[in-house]
Write a protein that binds this DNA or RNA. Structure first.
Length: 557
RNA sequence: UGGGGCGUGGUGCAACGGCAGCACACCAGACUUUGAAUCUGUGAAUCUUGGUUCGAAUCCAGGCGCCCCAGCCA
């Protein structure tokens, strides 16, 4: 595919191109506006990547700007975490890092200017009174009794609000627009509220009035010379206000364009509910691999490249939509298939004894590291008389279409020998504890000189050489496509979202470092967890391989 | 019954008045030292009614459905 064909087109890119062509703007600058009150999730990744890629495609730049206008909710801890996650995603803001709080002084000046124009006033009503007098969706609001105060009185009161003379909630500064406006956002929206405590994470106790989103965002965009302020659909009705403030102030007007946010099936994207999952200990922290937080995805083993590919594939539009989690899985598999080293790991071990293999003998088998990448080379893996294979790869009585090992069947041990099952040994409870087999020495490496075929190739590890390991098998966190819908999302938590298995890996894996990714052949992609110790590596299931046998088996009932 | 948006296969996105296409999912087959990957193929969609037009997913009008807005959150 040529770069030309690969170029995504969507209504936003079309609008940007058109603005450049018409001369409305002669450069492109976008912005990432996270609020430092929580960790980033894959929904943020969509927004971030749209901002970043569009700026890049049009030769423009990207500003990172923390939207820190509410000290009651925001903390420095999140600022650092957000930067770390954004960098991991591959976003480059070239040192252009700003804060809404950088502009508090200028904003205050502008508030004074609006008061002088008669476009803003201090309202002494309580929050409840303001709310009641706003009207409803179908009825106009009523004007505040304080709406027609003199400019002097408004100026005086705003200054005293700023000085901290009044308690929280006692007064607000409002824009003077139209209490009968059909768009509720335009009914004299609040601009400043009084907040004494806690101290702001950057400005400390300098301020006790803080701007609201509507009174801050557009002005910040304007000051930074943002050309395209891209945001999600819920801000569409705020656009008239965004434009109203800039027009009244007579300053540079960026263009706000809205797109639909990401909804992913079986995932939780609400910051509040994410927090609840963590606080209720339903998951083990913000980086729990079952979460679609960027930290969770990273710990799970998902790559930034897979996320980027995913975001490109889902496109940009305005329709409310739900993306199938299977698409993310597909992107992850595609990337990992190309890049991860193959290893053998037995998750649910079953002992196999090769009766005709000499006791005490061991040999080294050649194994390819990644058939998709010849440059990845090969390795040696030890083979001996006693092995572990996967419990699923043996059946005492095979169902139809079962190609693997069962009494009398012959299979290939990957990169080793053909073996034929002779008999099994059970314990007192009737559980199979050992499978006995004979091997064909002529099939060394896995090829039969007489040309005979086997239906199946299975993986194994040598019991004497294998390393014990823990496997954390993750499944979707919720049992419902949209857990956010309904009274209590915790009712839809999948009780089997984590299964911990104890098994064996080939010796090479003893040295796996946290974050290393592998494909365990015939199983799936795994990522070494930070909980790993030299004695006991821990691997997280990133995503399983496609499993057409599982489908056949399911159909058989 | 205010205002703002959105309706294309199961899901998501294209087609910008001229043969409705791509991806994921699904199903069937080929190949296979991973029942993986890869390859081939099948099925499956324009919310509805009317209008304009030689021709409408696209333009116009009405209807229906869904989403957002009554925070001193963002």
């Amino acid at each position: 595919m040529s770069p030309e064909e690969n170029k995504p087109t969507d209504f936003i890119r079309e609008a940007v191109a058109e603005d450049l062509k018409s001369g409305r703007f002669n450069y492109v600058r976008t912005r990432l506006p996270p609020e430092p009150n929580g960790y980033l999730h894959i929904g943020h990744a969509k927004a971030f990547l749209i901002d970043y890629l569009i700026a890049k495609e049009f030769g423009g730049e990207l500003n990172l700007r923390f939207d820190d206008t509410n000290p009651a909710k925001e903390e420095t801890e999140y600022v650092e975490a957000i930067k770390e996650d954004a960098r991991w995603l591959g976003i480059d803001w070239g040192g252009r890092e700003f804060y809404a709080s950088d502009y508090f002084d200028k904003l205050y000046e502008w508030a004074i200017a609006l008061i002088k124009k008669g476009k803003a006033y201090v309202d002494d009503q309580t929050a409840e009174q303001v709310s009641k007098s706003r009207g409803t969706l179908t009825e106009a609001g009523v004007e505040s009794p304080f709406r027609n105060r003199s400019v002097e009185e408004n100026l005086d009161l705003l200054e005293r609000m700023k000085k901290g003379e009044f308690p929280d909630g006692s007064r607000i500064l409002r824009a003077r627009i139209d209490m009968a406006h059909p768009n509720m956002v335009m009914r004299d929206p609040a601009m400043y509220r009084i907040i004494h405590e806690p101290a702001h994470h950057r400005t400390g106790n300098k301020w006790c009035i803080y701007p609201l989103y509507d009174w801050s965002h557009g002005q910040n965009d304007s000051m930074e010379g943002i050309t395209h302020s891209l945001c999600s659909l819920e801000y569409e009705i705020h656009r008239p206000l965004y434009e109203w403030f800039l027009k009244e102030l007579g300053v540079f007007q960026p263009r706000q364009i809205e797109f639909s946010r990401l909804n992913l099936t079986f995932a939780m994207m609400s910051k509040r509910k994410l927090r609840k999952l963590v606080e209720m200990k339903i998951v083990n922290g913000w980086d729990d691999p079952r979460l679609t937080t960027l930290r969770g995805l990273r710990r799970r083993g998902v790559t930034p490249a897979a996320i980027l590919d995913f975001i490109k594939r889902i496109g940009v539009a305005k329709a409310d939509s739900w993306i199938d989690m299977a698409l993310l899985d597909s992107c992850v598999r595609e990337d990992l298939n190309k890049h991860s080293l193959r290893r053998m790991a037995v998750l649910k071990p079953l002992k196999v004894v090769i009766d005709n293999y000499p006791e005490g003998q061991a040999e080294e088998m050649d194994a390819i590291n990644n058939p998709e990448d010849p440059g990845a080379g090969a390795r040696k893996i030890p083979f001996s008389k006693v092995l572990y294979i996967e419990q699923d790869d043996f059946r005492e009585t095979p169902p139809p279409k079962y190609y693997r090992l069962y009494p009398g069947s012959e299979v290939r041990l990957r990169y080793a020998y053909f073996i034929k099952c002779t008999h099994i040994v059970k314990d007192a409870n009737g559980e199979i504890i050992e499978v006995h087999a004979t091997y064909d020495p002529a099939t060394q490496g896995g090829d039969a000189p007489d040309g005979r075929k086997v239906k199946s190739t299975i993986h194994w590890v040598s019991a004497a050489h294998a390393k014990q390991a823990e496997f954390r098998m993750y499944d979707r966190l919720f049992t419902k496509e949209n857990p956010d819908e309904g009274d209590d999302f915790t009712a839809f938590v999948n009780p089997n979202s984590l299964e911990i298995l104890s098994g064996y890996v080939e010796p090479h894996l003893a040295s796996a470092k946290a974050g290393d990714r592998f494909q365990f052949e015939r199983q799936g992609y795994f990522c070494a967890d930070p909980d790993s110790t030299p004695d006991r590596p821990v691997f997280n299931l990133t995503v399983g391989l496609r499993d057409s046998w599982a489908k056949i088996e399911k159909k058989q009932g």
